[in-house]
Design a binder for these strands. Structure first.
Length: 228
DNA sequence: ATTTAGATCCTCT
DNA sequence: GAGGATCTAAATG
């Protein structure tokens, strides 16, 4: 992971340049970065990104932009890198994506889990959890993450390079080490097939387009999927 | 620890 | 009208 931070300052807000990557590279690059949400009352909620999935354009049969589809819902996927794409699914959940690449080309990264670093109490309240909750459960999974950070459809197509409500900051190696459950063997990044896309058919459902911090209790999915 | 069913409604065909 | 980039609780090994 060290190479990822070469020459960049921890805590700096990402600009257009950081988002100018293709989905695969973006998904890998986002691991360890910090997602920041500022509520209307000024409360800051933060978390280190520990799990992502890349969604490509026309060829990717698991993507909302498959076969070149362009609809009102997926329009943000075609925007310039740095915009958000939030969609509603399963009748009750929102999922948050980071749009990447150049304008006119579909591509985004689903952020699936965070290690919360600020605002735990507010996140728990947003999730509707009662006493006894654990930090590791607050943002484990894309829908939980959105609920904890109060991200919904009104935060789709937001420019995260300028927004006062939602943005990404450069990560810090120490925080990622913490997220990796001690990280005694160093921070290791695992890869696997994406979750919940079986319907896309063997070829695309099987591609290793999911990235996660190995051994982290903040990552979603089963032990089997996470390779122990 | 793993599996199952049910919730619930927007989006696209 | 069908299905979904999910989550929770309950049941079962």
């Amino acid at each position: 992971m060290r190479d990822v931070w070469a020459g960049v300052a921890a805590g700096a807000r990402w600009g257009v340049g950081e988002f100018a990557l293709r989905p695969r590279e973006m998904a890998r690059r986002l691991i360890g970065a910090v997602l920041v949400r500022r509520l209307d009352d000024g409360t800051l909620l933060r978390g280190v990104i520990v799990e992502t999935e890349a969604y490509l354009g026309a060829a990717d049969q698991a993507s909302h932009a498959r076969n070149g589809r362009r609809t009102a819902r997926n329009e943000p996927m075609y925007m310039r890198g740095g915009f958000s794409y939030v969609y509603f699914t399963y009748g009750m959940h929102f999922c948050f994506n980071v749009v990447c690449g150049e304008e006119g080309v579909a591509g985004a990264v689903l952020v699936r889990a965070l290690m919360p670093t600020a605002g735990w109490e507010v996140m728990a309240a947003n999730r509707g959890l009662s006493a006894g909750w654990k930090e590791r459960d607050l943002c484990r999974g894309p829908a939980r993450l959105c609920r904890a950070l109060r991200i919904d459809g009104t935060l789709s197509a937001v420019d995260m390079t300028t927004s006062a409500s939602l943005w990404i900051e450069e990560g810090d190696a120490k925080l990622l080490t913490e997220a990796s459950d001690g990280g005694r063997r160093g921070v290791r990044i695992g890869r696997s097939a994406r979750i919940g896309v079986e319907g896309a058919g063997k070829e695309w459902a099987g591609k290793p387009l999911r990235w996660f911090v190995r051994g982290s209790g903040f990552v979603s999915g089963t032990r089997k999927v996470n390779g122990g």
